[in-house]
Amino acid sequence: MGRTNALVVVAAMLALGGCDMTSSGGPDGSSLSTGAFAVQTGRAGDPARERAVATAAALGLLIGPKLDSELDDNDRRLAYQAQMDALERGAPGAPIAWRNPVSGRHGNIVAGPEYELKGATCRGYSHTVTIGGQLETVRKTACRNGDGKWAAIG
């Protein structure tokens, strides 16, 4: 990912950072912290660093900044893989679990049925994460964008 792409990702995170819905069902309004430490790790041009930044940004948009700020890079990688599995192949209502044995954090994603919205394929989902024994749940909707990737819309 080049410098221009990274700036586009950061701009998108800033624009969408206030769209998070937490378990309380209201706007989160917390400040954007998606991938803050991931951006600071590794060397510029390091493919592993760039993958970590891209994963952190993508997951941050899918689960919101409040929940994302509680996860480390390995949590994010595992959560993102499970999120994509749930959206791509998950049966409606069936949980897709993830667990990081090192941090002890774990969660699950439950996707709803696919539906069409303005010509795009969409799915509602909930992503629940257990952090320090506390359950945190985010409920959002994701739709496939023009390049076939899932993006949160609310």
Rank of each mutant, 00 (worst) to 15 (best):
A11Y: 13
N100A: 07
Y80V: 08
A11N: 15
F37Q: 12
A36S: 14
L32P: 00
G2C: 08
Q83W: 03
G26Q: 15
D72T: 02
N108L: 13
T22W: 04
V53P: 00
Q134A: 15
Q134Y: 13
A91T: 09
A48Y: 12
V8F: 10
P47S: 02
Q134R: 15
S103T: 15
P113E: 15
A54D: 11
Q83E: 12
F37S: 15
P95G: 03
A36G: 07
S24N: 06
V53G: 03
G2I: 01
E116T: 02
I63E: 02
V138P: 03
R76C: 00
D46Q: 10
S24H: 08
L135G: 14
E70S: 13
G29S: 08
A58G: 04
W98K: 00
S33K: 09
L16G: 13
G112K: 04
G112I: 01
Y80L: 12
A52T: 02
A48T: 13
L117G: 12
G2A: 00
G146T: 05
G119P: 13
L78M: 12
M13W: 00
A91I: 05
E114H: 13
T41R: 14
G17S: 11
K149C: 06
L59K: 01
D72F: 01
A91Q: 11
S126Q: 08
A152W: 10
C143P: 01
A58Y: 06
A52W: 04
G133Q: 08
L78K: 13
A6I: 09
A38V: 04
C19K: 09
W150F: 02
G107K: 03
Y115Q: 11
G17W: 05
Y115R: 14
T121D: 07
L87H: 04
K66S: 08
K149V: 02
N100S: 07
A44V: 10
R3L: 11
L14T: 15
G112S: 00
S24V: 10
T22A: 08
Q81R: 11
N100C: 07
G124N: 12
A152P: 01
A44S: 13
I63L: 01
G29C: 04
M13V: 04
S31L: 14
A86L: 02
L14F: 14
G133F: 05
G124F: 05
G25K: 00
P95N: 05
G2Y: 02
G154T: 06
M1D: 07
D46N: 15
Q83H: 11
E70Q: 12
L62I: 04
L16K: 13
M84T: 06
Y115P: 11
T121M: 10
V129W: 00
N74M: 12
C122P: 05
E50T: 07
V102W: 14
E88K: 05
G18F: 01
D75V: 03
R51S: 04
A79T: 01
G93E: 13
Y80S: 05
N74W: 11
L67I: 06
G45W: 08
D75N: 03
P65V: 07
S33V: 11
T22K: 08
M84R: 13
N100Y: 05
V8P: 11
G119I: 08
D20L: 05
A91M: 09
P65G: 05
L71P: 03
R76W: 03
T41G: 14
L62D: 03
K149A: 14
V9S: 04
S31P: 12
A57F: 06
S69W: 10
S23E: 15
G35F: 05
